[in-house]
Each structure stands twice: as C-alpha cells, then as structure tokens.
Amino acid sequence: MQRFPFRFAPAYRLPALLFGVTPGTARVEVDDTELRARFGPWSLRTPLTNVASVERTGGFQFLKTAGPAHLSFADHGVTFATNGDDAVCVCFHEPVRVLDPTGRLRHPGATFTVADPPALLAALEDLEER
C-alpha cells in the first residue's frame, strides 16, 4: 500500500482544523485493489478499476477550497484541499459517494492536494497501463 499525506499550506491549517481535517486525518491510499481517501470526517473508497483518468491540476481560490470537503457546482466533483497550489484530479467511470451519506449525490471526480502530486499521479497512471 502507498500512502500519500496532504500538504497543508499555513493559511489552510486553521480552516481545516475547524472541520477536523489535520495531518493525522487527511491522506490518500492506493493498494493493489482500491483507492481510499480520508479528509477529516469525509472519506472516499473505490476500486482501482473505477479510476478512469488522472491529471495534475492547481491554482485554486482559497475561499472555494479552504476548510471542509467542497462540492464543485460546475461538475459535481469533490475537492479535498489543504493548499491551493498543486493537486491530482481523479475521474471515475462510475461516480462515487462522499458528501451525501444517502448516496443520492455522487461525484464523477475527486481532487486531492497531496504533498507529492507526481508520486500519486505515477501510482495511478501505472494502473492505467495494466
């Protein structure tokens, strides 16, 4: 299993803490069968076969990303952000449940601001080659 901690920019620490998001409760994990992410009280779990594509992204606005997990009104994706600079966006074949415990709202993609975006990108791109 590979574990990818989040990189916390100083300005994001307090807003994240208010929602229970800390370095101890924020991570992405990839093993042979699953992608799992935890962001304070929010979590995402999906089979690796559900990963459709991955790309590097960034340049997020503080007010749209600081604090809790965020819903994108543009594409209904979910963002787990602890900085606004650098992230990995993962698109899924089948949308996943994160923000809505009933499962009626599902997300076609998720964005993670991990400490080492190239390493997460490489881990997930390796899966596309299998």
Rank of each mutant, 00 (worst) to 15 (best):
T113K: 06
L105N: 12
C89D: 07
A115M: 05
L105E: 10
D116E: 15
P117K: 08
R104N: 13
F92D: 01
R97M: 10
A87P: 03
G103N: 11
P117D: 06
A115C: 08
V88G: 04
L99D: 03
L99M: 07
V90S: 04
T111P: 11
A115N: 01
A115L: 02
V88A: 06
A110K: 10
N83M: 09
V114R: 00
H93A: 13
P101W: 12
L99V: 03
F80N: 04
T79R: 15
P101T: 14
P108M: 11
E94M: 01
V88I: 14
L99W: 03
R106F: 00
T102S: 15
P117G: 15
G84N: 10
P108G: 14
T113Q: 05
C91M: 08
P101V: 14
P95I: 07
C91Y: 07
V88Y: 01
C89H: 11
C89K: 13
V96D: 05
D100H: 04
E94R: 13
F80M: 13
A87W: 00
D100F: 02
V96K: 04
H107G: 00
C89S: 09
F112T: 02
R97H: 08
P101Y: 09
D86Q: 05
L105Y: 07
D85V: 05
V98H: 06
P108T: 07
R97I: 08
L105F: 07
R104H: 09
A115W: 00
R106L: 01
T79H: 10
E94P: 02
A87M: 02
T102M: 10
F112I: 10
F80H: 09
C89P: 01
A87T: 01
V98I: 14
D116F: 00
R106Q: 13
P95W: 07
D116Y: 01
P117A: 09
V90E: 07
T111W: 07
P117Y: 02
T113R: 06
P101F: 10
N83Y: 03
R106H: 05
H107Q: 12
L105R: 14
P117C: 15
L105W: 09
P95H: 09
C91A: 14
T111Q: 15
V98C: 02
P117E: 04
L99S: 04
D86V: 03
R104P: 03
A110P: 10
T79A: 11
D86A: 13
D86C: 02
P95L: 11
A115H: 03
T111M: 14
P117I: 08
A81C: 13
N83I: 07
H93D: 12
T82Q: 02
P108V: 14
F92C: 00
D85H: 04
H107R: 06
V98G: 08
A81E: 02
V88F: 06
T82W: 00
C91E: 12
L99H: 02
G103W: 06
T113C: 08
P117M: 12
G84A: 12
D86L: 02
A110W: 08
A115S: 14
T79C: 12
T102H: 11
L99E: 00
T111K: 08
G109M: 13
P95R: 06
P101I: 13
H107W: 09
V114T: 15
F92A: 03
G109A: 13
G84D: 04
T113G: 08
R104I: 14
R106M: 06
A110R: 12
V88Q: 05
A81T: 04
T102I: 09
H93S: 11
C91H: 12
V114G: 07
R104V: 15
T113M: 06
